[in-house]
Design a protein around this nucleic acid. Structure first.
Lengths: 116, 116
DNA sequence: GTTAAAATGATACTAGGTCTCAATAAGTAA
DNA sequence: TTACTTATTGAGACCTAGTATCATTTTAAC
């Protein structure tokens, strides 16, 4: 994996952001260097995810990239759209003043048939 | 809301399916009547979701529609792609022989600022 | 420097939709 | 039963969030 000017710029932008959409990233990168193409940015995002340096989070209304890669839950404010990372101790017992209306839980693994 | 031939056909297909992607639905509907357009199907899907007769579920690799609308969790087999609805009692204590590798949890609600 | 492989940017294409709009169909009222 | 009004439809353009292709750079190892 080669160290390029493009990757350095993309890294410098990501370091400033906790959660971001691909569009957020593309526009901030292009403010610095407008010749960097979308394909390069998406390609590098995929690499970072592969390397577990970034996590892709699928929310109901949008997809965000998250620099926090250890397992944790997310809280999404349905009014302002803010995303808050919830680490273990904060999960349900709400020290952040969050009003939780609903939750979405998905488990990934192997089903009975595929374990055989 | 008018009762149309199109809605009847779409309903009859949905009744046969537990979880389906929009593509699944479109092709099965078009097997019955190939003149029914994509827009009609997506429009009606949105209506059904609005009416809480259907739930849209965002998984990492695909989006599925789920006829089970009460709050529940999902299990996705990472090998065969099967989706299993988990009702309360099955959640973690695994009577279905599932091997859970990871989970994704998102809470939706109002943050501290938006509650004020 | 040379050179070979990796990376880039332009561009076309994809999935899963939404939007627009003229044409059609549903259902009520006469 | 016909007339009329308004909802619904289908075609097609457009959108978001990407992926694939490929000729043209660039990197970094010699």
């Amino acid at each position: 994996m080669r160290n390029t000017k493009q990757k350095q710029i993309i890294n410098s932008v990501i370091e400033q952001l906790m959660h971001f959409t691909s569009d957020d990233l593309i526009s901030k990168v292009n403010e610095i260097d407008s010749t960097i193409g979308r394909a390069t940015i998406f390609r590098y995002l995929s690499e970072l995810i592969e390397q577990k340096k970034l996590q892709k989070v699928y929310l109901d209304k949008k997809i965000v990239y998250d620099s926090c890669v250890h397992e944790h839950n997310h809280f999404v404010c349905e009014k302002c759209g803010k995303i808050i990372d919830l680490v273990q101790t904060q999960t349900i017992s709400n020290p952040l003043g969050l009003l939780i209306n609903r939750s979405s839980v998905t488990y990934y693994g192997l089903c009975d048939d595929c374990r055989k």
